[in-house]
């Protein structure tokens, strides 16, 4: 079975997550060896995924944690007597 580019794109997310079976993975790998377009699509999709997981890219607002725990302290103190 030969798979085409569209077929590869349909499985890119699962492929990145290692969530395709061995047969399909081998097919995709073989396609990627010769298809520059799909390799580029895979690489750029993977780059986007890697970037999203970078904690430095998505940072909490400055002081978020301090304000949260201060409010929590306040609430914990309020409920102390109850």
């Amino acid at each position: 079975m030969k798979i085409d580019c569209k077929h590869v794109w349909q499985h890119i997310s699962a492929y990145i997550d290692g969530d395709v079976d061995a047969v399909l993975r081998a097919e995709i790998d073989r396609h990627l060896e010769t298809c520059e377009i799909c390799s580029a699509v895979l690489d750029s999709t993977r780059n986007v995924v890697v970037l999203m997981a970078d904690d430095r890219v998505f940072e909490l607002p400055a002081g978020f944690s301090d304000r949260l725990h201060a409010r929590l302290d306040h609430d914990l103190a309020l409920n102390e007597g109850s």
């Binding site: 890119i12 390799s39 580029a40």
Partner: peptide, 20 residues
């Protein structure tokens, strides 16, 4: 069916040099 952006020239992200 989402057609991906096809950019064969973009393969790498220069993260280290990008301002976060």
């Amino acid at each position: 069916d989402f057609t991906p952006a096809i950019l064969t020239s973009w393969r790498e992200v220069p993260t280290e040099t990008l301002e976060r």
